[in-house]
C-alpha cells in the first residue's frame, strides 16, 4: 500500500528538503571560497585571510586578496549562477533536457561579437569593458533568433531535435568565422582572444564584476520570479494555454532573459560550456522539478561548479594556469554523454 500523504504536507517536505539542499550548497560555496583564496602562487592562511578582510593585513596581502583573488572568485560565482539559470530556462522552455547555451551555439554567437569588437577596436589598452556584455547580448540574441527561425517549420513549429541540430551547426559556423578572424589579429590581441576563447576568467579587476553585476542582479530575480509560469509551461503548450498562460509571450520573455544571462556571462568568461547543462540537471535530481526550488538550487550548483573549476585550474598545473573552461568541459562533457546515453529518443 502506498502511504497516503496530503499534497500539502508532501509539498512542505519538498520545500524543507529544498531549503536544506540550498543551505548545504551555500556552505560548500563558502568552503570552496576559503580554499580558493588560499590556492595560487602565494598562499594566505585562513587567519591571514580574516585579518586582511577586516583591514589589518599587510599591503601585499591586501593586493593579492582584493585585487587578484576576490574579483576572480566573485566573477566565478556570478557567471556560474548566470549560466546555470540560463540553461535551466532553455531546458524548460524548449522542453528538451539537452538544451544548453553552449550546445545551442548561443555562447558562440556572443563570442563572435566580442571578437569582432576586440579586433576592430583601435587599442587593447582601453578595452571597452562595459560595452562587452551589451555587444555579447546583441550577438547572442541574433544567434538565438537565427537558430529559432532556421529550426522553425510551418505547421510543425520547432521540434526540439531540429533545434539542437541547428544549434550544433550554427556553433560550428560561428567557430569557423572566429578562426578566420583570429588569424588577422596582431599577436597581442591574438593572445588575449585565445585565452578568452578557452574560457579563462580573465577579468581579474572589479571593472568586470561591475559590468556583469547589473545583468545578473536584474535577470536572475526576474527568472526566479517567473518560476510559477515555468511550472505551468512545463505541462506542455496546450495545457499551459488551457490554464490561462500567454504561452508564446511568456516563452519569449523567458528566452530573452536566458539569452541575456548567458551573453553577459560569456562576455566576461569566454567559452565556458556545460554549466548550463550540469547545473539544472543536478538541481532537478536534488530538489525535484518545481522551479521555485530548482532555479535557485541550479544557480548555487552552477556557482559551485565554476568556483571549483577555477580553483582546480589554478592548482593542477602550478605555476601555469589551466583555463576554467577546459576544466569545466572535462567535468561537463562526460556528464552530457552520460545523459545522452540515458535519455530515450
Amino acid at each position: 500500500m502506498l502511504e497516503k500523504t496530503s499534497p500539502a504536507s508532501f509539498d512542505q517536505a519538498r520545500n524543507k528538503k529544498g531549503l536544506f539542499v540550498m543551505l548545504v550548497l551555500s556552505i560548500l560555496i563558502v568552503l570552496v571560497f576559503i580554499i580558493s583564496v588560499n590556492t595560487g602562487y602565494i598562499r594566505l592562511t585562513p587567519i591571514e585571510l580574516l585579518k586582511t578582510m577586516f583591514g589589518s593585513g599587510t599591503a601585499k596581502q591586501e593586493l593579492i586578496l582584493f585585487d587578484f583573488r576576490l574579483p576572480r572568485i566573485v566573477i566565478s560565482v556570478l557567471i556560474g549562477a548566470g549560466l546555470a539559470v540560463s540553461g535551466a530556462v532553455m531546458q524548460g522552455v524548449f522542453r528538451n533536457s539537452l538544451a544548453d547555451p553552449g550546445i545551442l551555439g548561443i555562447n558562440a554567437g556572443a563570442g563572435l561579437m566580442v571578437m569582432l569588437l576586440i579586433s576592430f577596436y583601435p587599442t587593447t589598452a582601453a578595452a571597452p569593458v562595459f560595452l562587452l556584455p551589451l555587444v555579447a547580448f546583441f550577438g547572442a540574441a541574433v544567434t538565438a533568433i537565427l537558430i529559432y527561425s532556421l529550426a522553425y517549420k510551418r505547421h510543425e513549429g520547432v521540434s526540439p531535435i531540429r533545434l539542437l541540430l541547428t544549434g550544433v551547426a550554427i556553433a560550428a559556423g560561428m567557430s569557423a568565422a572566429m578562426i578566420v578572424l583570429t588569424l588577422k589579429l596582431d599577436p597581442d590581441k591574438y593572445k588575449f582572444v585565445a585565452t578568452w576563447l578557452a574560457g579563462s576568467i580573465w577579468g581579474t579587476s572589479w571593472k568586470f564584476v561591475l559590468s556583469l553585476l547589473p545583468w545578473i542582479l536584474i535577470l536572475l530575480p526576474y527568472v526566479i520570479f517567473k518560476a510559477r509560469v515555468m511550472n505551468v509551461l512545463n505541462l506542455g503548450e496546450q495545457t499551459a494555454t488551457g490554464l490561462g498562460a500567454a504561452v508564446n509571450r511568456e516563452q519569449f520573455k523567458l528566452l530573452a532573459a536566458a539569452v541575456g544571462l548567458a551573453a553577459a556571462s560569456v562576455a566576461v568568461s569566454g567559452g565556458i560550456g556545460f554549466v548550463g547543462l550540469v547545473g539544472p540537471h543536478l538541481a532537478r535530481r536534488l530538489v525535484g522539478p518545481k522551479h521555485q526550488l530548482m532555479l535557485p538550487t541550479a544557480a548555487l550548483l552552477g556557482s559551485l561548479l565554476v568556483l571549483i573549476a577555477d580553483t582546480l585550474g589554478r592548482w593542477i598545473l602550478q605555476p601555469s594556469e589551466v583555463p576554467t573552461g577546459i576544466v569545466v568541459a572535462v567535468i561537463g562533457a562526460p556528464y552530457f554523454l552520460y545523459l545522452l546515453a540515458r535519455t530515450k529518443s
Binding site: 589551466v322 562533457a333 545522452l340 529518443s345
Partner: peptide, 29 residues
C-alpha cells in the same frame, strides 16, 4: 548504441559534438 532507443543520427551528432568539445579541451590543456 548504449542509449535506450538505439543509435539515431541525432544522438550520434550530439555525442560527437560533446566528445569533440571534451577532447579539444583536453588537447588545449
Amino acid at each position: 548504441s548504449m542509449a535506450k532507443g538505439g543509435l539515431t543520427p541525432t544522438r550520434l551528432v550530439l555525442a560527437g559534438a560533446a566528445l569533440s568539445l571534451l577532447l579539444q579541451a583536453l588537447s588545449e590543456g
